[in-house]
Each structure stands twice: as structure tokens, then as C-alpha cells.
């Protein structure tokens, strides 16, 4: 590793905890793309979506059986709509399930999700290329 050390969160006391939690998730949730060591991700956002599910599970927002049922339902819906189910779209279904479950559990709702998505879109638009994209209050008051 390079210079600097990361800050440590309650869940991230060390990497081992993250990988242990991931191992339990893999046992409980079918189909997580993996190699011999554990989960693999095609793109960075997939790992972020995976990490959010792990963190919400640690907070007991849902159980793995609940998660697996919701994810299976999302995959079934996508297949009915013509998803080729080659594994490349797995984390799209994962994110659908995540958005659905946080709404069902009252963590947030579809309107709030849409509002934040719009704000992030605006934040990206106004951020010069090469600078970190950060959400600011005025991104919420933008209408186009």
C-alpha cells in the first residue's frame, strides 16, 4: 500500500471482518459472481452496491433469506422482461433489490431516491472533469 492509512469504521475494524461477512453473504445468497477467493466485480459501482447490502445486513435491516428472496424476485422479473441472465447484469438486479428493500423497510422511499439521483446528476454536470464529484445543497434546488 501507498502512504496514508484509511480511517476505520465500526464495521471495518479490519478487512477480515468484511471478508467474513462476505463469506456468510455468499453462503446465504445464490449466484454472487466469485472466483476461488471470493466475490469479483466487473465495475467499481458493483462493489459499492455489494458493500451497502453487507452494511445494511449488519445493521439488521434485513436478513439474508429476505435479501435472497427479493433478489431472486428481481432476477425473475428481469428474465421475464428479456434479460439474458449471463451474469453480466447480476449487480443491476442487486441494486434493484437494494432500492426496493430499503423502501419496503421504510429506510427511504422512491421519491427521495429520485430526488437524490437528480441531485447527483446535477453535481456531475457542474463538476469540471478531473475534480471529485461532491453533492452540495444547491444540487437539490436545481430544476431543468
Amino acid at each position: 500500500m501507498g502512504p496514508g492509512s484509511r480511517s476505520q469504521g465500526s464495521l471495518g475494524r479490519d478487512d477480515q471482518l468484511g471478508t467474513d461477512a462476505a463469506q456468510r453473504a455468499r453462503e446465504a445468497v445464490p449466484g454472487i459472481p466469485h472466483d476461488t477467493d471470493g466475490p469479483v466485480f466487473r465495475e467499481p459501482w458493483e462493489a459499492q452496491a455489494f458493500a451497502m447490502a453487507l452494511a445494511l445486513h449488519e445493521r439488521r435491516i434485513f436478513t439474508w433469506p429476505e435479501w435472497a428472496a427479493t433478489l431472486a424476485d428481481e432476477i425473475k422479473r428481469a428474465q421475464a422482461a428479456g434479460d439474458p441472465d449471463t451474469g453480466e447484469t447480476y449487480y443491476r438486479h442487486w441494486l434493484n433489490a437494494l432500492e426496493r428493500l430499503v423502501a419496503e423497510k421504510g429506510v427511504t422511499d422512491a421519491v427521495t431516491l429520485a430526488r437524490y439521483q437528480h441531485a447527483w446528476d446535477h453535481a456531475a454536470d457542474r463538476t469540471p472533469h478531473g475534480e471529485p464529484i461532491e453533492l452540495q445543497p444547491h444540487d437539490f434546488h436545481h430544476h431543468d
Binding site: 469504521g9 468484511g18 472466483d35
Partner: peptide, 18 residues
């Protein structure tokens, strides 16, 4: 519900798997 540092820690565990 989540701490960014906790998410980073999970993601970092997979840094080489992305």
C-alpha cells in the same frame, strides 16, 4: 445507516477483485 469508512473498508478488501 452506513458509515462511508465502513463501506470503504469492505470495498478495499476487494480492491484487487474489481
Amino acid at each position: 445507516y452506513v458509515e462511508p469508512a465502513a463501506l470503504d473498508a469492505i470495498i478495499e478488501a476487494y480492491e484487487t477483485k474489481i
